[in-house]
């Protein structure tokens, strides 16, 4: 501190690179942590606590319900991750359950739609699914021909890889992308049914190739589906990434 002051006096004295007419900007940041609770709270703080209280009470009833148990942390990452694979598989299960007559080849969510970096171990609460998927996005299906299907997969790969459910395999090599579904190459004349959020289907995350195409609506919110299907999980959740879905 004393040294810095000395340097500053020097700067003032000789005006090296800092002309006297220049305003000086001293930046810093604070971490907002529990250390800030050491001092006694003033009336403003008490007022805020009582402003929050009735909202919090309403939420606590709904949000603190345990759905499952997480055994190893679920972490977000690209091109594949424990959290991404887990969510995409759960979403695929929910989509199959919601459309039992459809043959859905895979389910995906945009990477930016996963809003937590990590779900830690212990009880999985309703509140954590809300934080994972806060958006009111709807499950929709799309029937894509092989050409648009590949275009969409290229977009996912160019974006670093999104969560995709098991069954899809995307391998990047010098000659381009090798895309397989259930071990089979993409047939440009075949129609593939996929499950995705309406946000992506409607052109979000720059998916212009999907925007104008027809959608099959479900009227079901993805978050509510994830809660419903997470509650059916009986074993503690422990996901291993094998790197079979996205090798970019």
């Amino acid at each position: 501190m004393r040294n810095l002051l000395y340097i500053f006096l020097l700067l003032l004295g000789f005006g090296c690179r800092a002309p006297l007419s220049s305003p000086t900007v001293q930046p810093r940041f604070y971490s907002v942590s529990d250390k800030l609770e050491a001092d006694q709270a003033g009336p403003q703080v008490q007022r805020m606590v009582s402003t929050i209280a009735p909202y919090k009470a309403q939420l606590d009833d709904k949000m603190n319900r345990q759905l499952a148990t997480v055994k190893t942390p679920l972490k977000k990452g690209q091109p594949e991750s424990t959290l991404g694979n887990w969510v995409a598989d759960l979403f695929a299960q929910a989509a199959a359950g919601s459309f039992p007559d459809r043959n859905i080849v895979f389910a995906t969510l945009n990477q930016g739609g996963i809003r937590v970096g990590e779900i830690g171990t212990g009880p999985l609460l309703v509140s954590e699914i809300y934080e994972l998927m806060p958006f009111d996005n709807e499950l929709v299906l799309m029937e894509l021909n092989g050409k648009v299907f590949k275009e969409f997969i290229s977009h996912i790969a160019n974006d670093g890889g999104w969560p995709v459910s098991a069954g899809l395999s995307v391998i990047s090599s010098g000659s381009g992308l090798d895309v397989k579904i259930g071990g089979k190459a993409i047939d440009p004349n075949q129609v593939y049914t996929i499950a995705l959020p309406d946000y992506v289907a409607n052109g979000g995350s720059n998916t212009s190739m999907l925007k104008e195409l027809p959608k099959i609506k479900s009227g079901l919110l993805i978050r509510d589906l994830l809660i419903e299907y997470a509650e059916k999980i009986t074993d503690p959740i422990s996901i291993k990434v094998e790197g079979k879905r996205m090798k970019l």
Binding site: L20, P23, V25, Q26, P27, F29, Y30, V32
Partner: peptide, 10 residues
């Protein structure tokens, strides 16, 4: 985090 900048005008 809370960011802070102290600006001193001559």
């Amino acid at each position: 985090r809370l960011g802070r900048m102290d600006i001193t005008f001559p």
